Computed example of a mutant assay.
Amino acid sequence: MCLLAIGWLHHPHWRLVMAGNRDEFHARPTAALAPWQDETSVIGGRDLRSGGGWAGVGAGGRMAVVTNVRDPQASQTGPSRGALVADYLRGRDPAGTHIERLARISAAYAPFNLLLADGHSLEYLGNHPAERQTLGPGVHGMSNGAIDAPWPKTRRLMDALSSWLAADADALDPLWQALADEHRPADSDLPDTGIGLERERWLSPAFIRGDDYGTRASTVVLIDADGHGEIHERRFGPQGVATGQSLVAF
């Protein structure tokens, strides 16, 4: 993922609601949302180059989502960040236990933000800089900076999710509209991540269009108190052309 908002213990029915976009090179081979063939308890899209994932759910209503941290000066070597999602969803350890173990080896990975949830807690781990938090009830947001960093597109998605949660609505249309948002903020509101103003502008909307790189998938996850729920995915090709959609109930 490159942008997400997550509502935790903040809705009368859904324990967790996550809405996010995955931005990636269009040439990178990817499998659509489905149960994984080698571990059918894991449901999500899949990166066919590394075998990992960017967002998904597992047994008992577990959820994992990862974003990269944007820093052109940082090393991009190390194990696949997609494995951070896959390893948790395949396992059975509580989110807090898993995060504790990962924190000891997180420096080996390229910069990342990781959110893990189970039936009891929502845990955050970042390695650039090193930070760990147990997140409280409410709405949280994350892009390619720190957790809850006030980037304009993160704030807009968090606001949209907060409104949807407060409305206690069934239709997901407001979340899809927020994920498709192409609003570009004023230059003065943009973060400075070291990539130059033109690229900051291009990457500033929630939904990014491009020939080689852009938003590849929008995902919405809904999990109730019993660990049941739904995961939805809408997929896109170059220049944001829709290529398909999927829904898996669990």
Rank of each mutant, 00 (worst) to 15 (best):
F112Q: 03
S75G: 11
L48Y: 06
G126R: 00
A95V: 12
L102H: 12
R46V: 03
S106N: 11
S106W: 01
L122F: 03
R49Q: 15
H98A: 15
L102G: 11
V65L: 04
Y109N: 06
R132V: 08
T134L: 06
N113V: 07
G119L: 05
L135Q: 07
A55C: 14
A55D: 11
Y88K: 03
T77V: 12
L125E: 01
R70A: 06
V57S: 11
D118N: 02
P94F: 11
P137F: 14
T134R: 12
H120A: 14
H140L: 05
W54A: 04
A64V: 04
E131A: 06
G61P: 10
D93I: 03
R90I: 02
R46P: 04
M63R: 00
L84K: 09
V57Q: 09
P111V: 02
H140W: 08
A107N: 08
D93R: 13
G52F: 05
G91D: 12
G51N: 12
V139M: 09
A107W: 10
G56V: 12
I43T: 14
A74F: 07
G44K: 00
R92E: 15
G138M: 09
G60E: 10
G44W: 00
A95F: 12
V66G: 02
R132P: 00
L122W: 00
S50H: 09
S80H: 10
V42P: 01
N113C: 07
P94T: 15
R70L: 14
A83T: 11
A86C: 07
R81G: 15
N113F: 02
H98R: 15
V139D: 05
M142S: 13
A95L: 14
A110N: 03
N113W: 07
A59N: 12
P72C: 03
P137H: 13
D93W: 06
G82W: 06
G45Q: 01
A95C: 14
V139C: 12
V65S: 00
D47T: 08
I43R: 01
Y88M: 03
H120L: 05
L122E: 04
A59G: 13
L114T: 08
L116E: 04
H140S: 04
Y88C: 05
I105C: 10
A130G: 05
S121A: 13
Y124D: 00
L89W: 13
S80R: 08
H120N: 10
A83P: 06
I43L: 07
L135T: 07
A110K: 08
H128A: 02
A95I: 13
H98G: 06
V42C: 09
A117R: 01
W54H: 06
N127Y: 02
P72S: 05
S143G: 12
G82L: 05
H128P: 01
T77A: 12
Q73C: 03
G119F: 04
R49D: 14
L122I: 04
A55F: 07
V139T: 12
R62M: 13
T97D: 15
L114Y: 08
Q73Y: 08
L125H: 01
L116C: 05
P94A: 11
E39C: 08
L114M: 08
S50T: 15
I99R: 14
G78I: 07
L135Y: 02
L89N: 10
